[in-house]
Amino acid sequence: MVPMHADARGAAATAAAAGVLVASDLDRTLIYSNRALALDVPDRLAPRLLSVEVHDGKALSFMTEQAAALLVELAREAWLVPATTRTLAQYERINLPGPTPGWVPAYAVCSNGGQLLVDGVPDPDWRAEITARLAAASAPLAEIVRHLALCADPEWTHKRKTADDLFAYLVVERAELPDGWIDELTGWCAERGWTVSLQGRKVYAVPAPLSKSAALAEAVRRSGATTVLAAGDSLLDADLLLAADAGWRPGHGELADRGWTAPGVTALDEVGVAAGEEIVRRFLARVRGEAPAPAVSPAAF
Rank of each mutant, 00 (worst) to 15 (best):
R127D: 12
V206P: 00
A128K: 10
A175P: 09
M1Y: 13
R174F: 04
V2H: 05
T29V: 07
A137M: 01
A69I: 07
M1R: 05
G232Q: 13
R9K: 04
E277H: 02
P47L: 01
V273S: 09
G276I: 10
G57M: 08
N34S: 06
A15D: 12
T157P: 07
P207N: 05
A214V: 09
T157K: 00
R133F: 11
R192P: 00
R192G: 00
Y204H: 06
E176W: 06
Q90F: 03
G19N: 15
A256L: 06
W181N: 12
L170M: 08
P3D: 05
K58M: 03
A168H: 03
T186I: 03
A69M: 15
S211N: 08
H5K: 13
A214C: 05
A285L: 10
V196T: 07
A69G: 09
P97H: 13
A38K: 00
T29E: 12
A293D: 10
G193C: 02
A67N: 15
Y169P: 05
G187N: 09
V228I: 06
E77V: 12
A243R: 04
A11V: 12
R201K: 14
S51Q: 05
A12H: 15
P140V: 11
E53V: 08
A128F: 13
D183Q: 10
P3T: 07
T64H: 09
P122A: 08
G251R: 08
I182L: 05
Y107S: 13
V41I: 01
D43N: 11
R28M: 11
D27W: 02
A68P: 13
Y204T: 01
A149C: 02
A230M: 03
M63N: 15
V271W: 02
C189S: 03
A142G: 02
S61I: 11
R28H: 03
G276F: 12
A135F: 04
A59P: 15
A8C: 13
Y32Q: 12
I144W: 04
L240G: 05
P292F: 03
P82R: 14
V271S: 11
S297I: 08
L148H: 02
P122T: 09
A128M: 09
A46T: 06
R192D: 03
P124N: 15
P154M: 06
G272A: 00
